[in-house]
Design a binder for these strands. Structure first.
Lengths: 205, 205
DNA sequence: GTCTATACTACGATAGAC
DNA sequence: GTCTATCGTAGTATAGAC
């Protein structure tokens, strides 16, 4: 189906080049369809851009659902349980940030974070929101000594340690003296993230 | 001088729109010069793009120099001194990430991290490298229990907590329920970053 | 639903006057 | 050093055949 093929290509082009930088001609050519098919299916360049955001949100939602469902279903009766779940969620996020297939999603989202358009709203409501809410809820239980705003910021900081793996990927590689992150590098990064998060979350109230 | 005015405009346009998305016509118009002036001064679009990277690197270097010079000059004779300096450097980075004027530098750099070109090399050698090396050196002294690679990753993770303030700015605002970060928000973010970093760095060997 | 053909605008580069 | 003028290419959108 052309519809899906165009969307898949769009993630790459809009991610790599941004809305202004990507061209519908190129996207059409790479999808092996006529340019006017984009108009037919998505109404134009802007429609395609927004449909791409929905597509990305759906993929993230599907990918994170198993882990987030587990947290939602869990009975959390103590800091230890909350910490354990939080470490699992963070590790899942880190694994996602390290995974090759998220490269273009990430580019698209990071662009939207810098200069949000309507597409950001779709990403946020469609995927980011649930991840953020879960982290915030777990941090509140793991660190009952923090007030609401302090807890939210702590959730952000924990997330930042995973996000850096995508947002500054090239610098991460430079610092580790490699051209891309192999299995051992990835294990090291995830292990350290886990260790740091555990330390921060275990801080005595 | 037209040269400097064009560069200043370029940071904004290349940052916001990327290399492909920005147009030399628009940059020229916004700089109040003829488009051919860009060819004269920078040789063309690509030359301007690279000159913009150098311009950004210079600004970051100047901005971070006082703090990094202080670290380089300091006699560090114990974990406590290293931790104290590290907290100061991280706070300086966080303050930079929160500052409005770094918005377009950050966009430019984040783009280059996703798909590095020759411009990344100029940014890295011209500015990022010294910041990274300083962090790594201080972490090594603050956490002598970690091996070289673990220390490097820890430096990355600490940096990530500051970087998130730019790379996911819009999400940070959403989570704090605000449309932009006021003084109180910024103080809260910097205070939490400091607290988290201190906890991680003080971990008993 | 997918194509070709076309209209119109904007792009980067360059030549040449001042 | 800065400008105007112009060339060739590539952009989005749309009309209309199949």
């Amino acid at each position: 189906m052309a519809h899906a093929r165009i969307l898949e290509t769009s993630v790459h082009f809009f991610g790599r080049l941004g809305f202004e930088g990507a061209s519908t001609r190129e996207i059409a050519r790479a999808s092996d369809v006529a340019m006017s098919s984009i108009t037919y299916h998505f109404g134009g360049k802007e429609g395609l851009y927004l449909a791409t955001a929905d597509h990305i949100a759906t993929q993230i939602r599907e990918r994170t659902a198993p882990l987030l469902d587990r947290v939602a279903a869990a009975e959390i009766n103590g800091r230890e349980t909350a910490i354990e779940l939080l470490l699992a969620v963070l590790d899942g996020i880190a694994e996602m940030m390290l995974s090759a297939e998220t490269e273009y999603w990430a580019c698209y989202i990071i662009r939207e974070q810098q200069e949000p358009t309507e597409a950001f709203e779709r990403l946020y409501q469609g995927a980011i929101r649930r991840v953020a809410d879960t982290l915030i809820r777990l941090v509140a239980m793991a660190r009952p000594d923090l007030d609401d705003r302090q807890g939210r910021v702590t959730a952000i900081m924990l997330f930042g340690q995973a996000m850096i793996l995508r947002s500054s990927r090239t610098t991460v590689c430079r610092v580790l003296g490699t051209s891309d992150l192999d299995e051992a590098d990835q294990a090291l990064l995830r292990e350290r993230l886990r260790a740091n998060a555990l330390t921060v979350l275990s801080e005595a109230p």
